[in-house]
Simulated assay, not measured.
Amino acid sequence: MLPADVERATGRYLAVADRLLPGRIAGFYVVGSVALGAWRADRSDIDFIAVVEGDLPPRRLRALHALGNLTAAGRAVRRVDPAIPGTVNGAFIAVDDLGLPVTTIRPLGSHSGWTVKLGRGFEVNPVVWKVLRDSGVAVRGPEPALLGLDPEPGRLREWNLGQLRGHWRGWGEGLASGSVRRANPGRVLGPPRLHHTVVTGEVISKEAAAEYALDTFGSRWEPLMRAALAHRDGMPVAFAGLLRAAGEFTLEVLAEAESRSTVD
C-alpha cells in the first residue's frame, strides 16, 4: 500500500502522463524512500521507474515534468523551498529494454527536481534496480518480480565503490579542506548507505544509514548524524561548524570501504 499522499501525487502525475502520452506508460513503479519504508510527507521525493511503449517526445517529457508536479512546485514556491519535496521524479525506459542487464539500458529520459534529461537517467543503476525488484510498488503494470529484471548483483558492490571513489570523494575532500562552505546536512547519510551496500549487498534507507554509521564508525560521529536526521525531519540545523567533520567522515567511510576491497 502507498501512503495516501503518494497515491494522490502519483495519480495526478499519471493522469497528466496519459493526456500527454496516451497509451504509452505501460508500467509505473515507485522506488526510493517509499519502497524502503522511509518516505516522509513534505520532506521526501517520490521516485519512480516508468516503462514506455513507443517513443518519448522531448517536448512532452518536459511538459509532463512541469504539469505533473504543479502541486509540489506550488507548495515549494510558497515555502521558499528549492528542493521541491513531494516531487514525482524518475526515469523512463523502453518496454523492450526491461530484461536487459541494468548497466546496458539507455534510458529514454528522466527528470529530477528542476532538471529534465534526455537519453539519460542516473536512476537506472544496480542499486535502484535491486530496490525495484525486491520492494518496488507497482502502480501500473505487473508486479516487479514478474518483470524479468537483471540488477546485475555481481556489479552492485563495485558500482557503489565507484560512487564513493568518484562523486563522494570529491565532496568529502572539498568539505575537509574548507573549499566547500555550504552543504545539505542530509547528504552525509549517503556515504554510509553506499558502504552498507558494499559490505552486505543490501540497500537501506537514509535513516537506517545513520544508525549503521554509528555502529560501524563510532559514536564520535553522533553530532553529525543527529544534524542529518534533524534536517530530514525539517528542523533547522546549524551545520557550518560541522562541515569539516562531514568531509572527514565521508573520507573515513571511503577509506574503510577501500580497505575491504583490498582485503577481498
Rank of each mutant, 00 (worst) to 15 (best):
K117Y: 09
A255T: 01
G241K: 05
P236C: 04
G186M: 12
V51E: 02
R62K: 11
L100Q: 14
L100S: 14
S44H: 05
V128F: 07
E173R: 12
G27S: 04
P151S: 07
L147S: 00
P57W: 02
A38Y: 06
E53M: 05
H195R: 12
V203W: 09
L56P: 06
R43K: 11
V124H: 01
T200W: 11
M225W: 09
R59C: 12
G154E: 13
S259H: 11
V198P: 05
D5K: 13
I105S: 01
R62P: 00
S261E: 15
H196N: 08
T103W: 13
S259W: 10
V116K: 05
G32E: 04
V124A: 03
V188Q: 06
E152P: 01
E248Y: 01
W171F: 15
V137G: 07
N160I: 00
P22R: 09
A240T: 11
L132D: 04
P85H: 11
R226K: 14
P236D: 07
R120Q: 15
A257I: 00
E152V: 03
G54Q: 07
T104N: 13
L108T: 00
M225E: 06
V102Y: 07
R181H: 11
A50R: 02
V95C: 12
E252R: 14
P85M: 10
H231A: 13
E158L: 10
G99Y: 10
R120H: 14
R133T: 03
S177N: 08
A41W: 10
E143L: 13
T216Y: 09
G32A: 04
P142C: 04
Q163W: 12
G37Q: 06
A210K: 05
A66I: 05
K206W: 06
A210Y: 01
P82S: 11
A138V: 04
K206H: 09
E211M: 09
G136S: 11
G166W: 04
A4S: 15
E256S: 15
L61Q: 03
T200N: 12
V180K: 13
G109T: 03
W114G: 11
A227W: 04
H195Q: 10
F122V: 12
Y212T: 00
A17W: 04
L254D: 06
W39D: 01
I204T: 10
D233T: 05
G218C: 08
P191D: 10
A227K: 02
A76P: 07
A145P: 01
R43M: 14
G99A: 12
S261L: 13
A50Y: 05
R24L: 07
R232K: 14
M235F: 09
S177M: 08
P82R: 11
R193K: 14
E7Y: 08
R75F: 10
S219P: 05
L147W: 03
F48H: 08
D134E: 15
G86C: 04
D264W: 08
G166K: 03
P236K: 08
